[in-house]
């Protein structure tokens, strides 16, 4: 079962990347809010705080994962016959993972420049 789901041509991959993105987004926003409520870093230290660093690390990890998945789906799509359902799903998966990666990159960028809790 799991092995079949892990095939890049399975329709699950059309939402897997987006789910990962959503999860990351929740952790990003939730983590920020909780740390700001419990132990906010000083406003004067700008964007150079441990909190920003942690969020950035998380973002980079998710980004790497999504990039690998995009590549996996894309490669799998190439191997399938044009017009086949498998190729459709693999290409769709590659697109969804790719845009998820893009969204992760863009939404993560403000972490570099903005102070966290002001």
């Amino acid at each position: 079962m799991i092995r079949r789901l892990w095939q890049p041509t399975h329709p699950v991959h059309t939402t897997l990347g987006l789910l990962l993105w959503a999860l990351w987004f929740v952790v990003l926003y939730g983590g920020l809010s909780i740390v700001c409520a419990v132990a906010p870093p000083a406003a004067a230290s700008g964007a150079l705080t441990g909190l920003n660093g942690g969020l950035l690390l998380l973002t980079a990890t998710v980004l790497a994962l999504l990039a690998i998945m995009t590549w996996r789906c894309w490669r799998a799509g190439k191997a399938q016959a044009p017009g086949s359902s498998e190729r459709f799903m693999a290409r769709l998966g590659a697109g969804a993972h790719g845009v998820s990666a893009l969204a992760t990159l863009w939404i993560g960028l403000p972490v570099v420049v903005l102070p966290p809790c002001v």
């Binding site: 920020l32 403000p110 966290p116």
Partner: peptide, 14 residues
Amino acid sequence: PQLAQAFFSVASML
């Protein structure tokens, strides 16, 4: 906090 707003701002544009 403005950083949190920035996440949603970028997501909205996306």
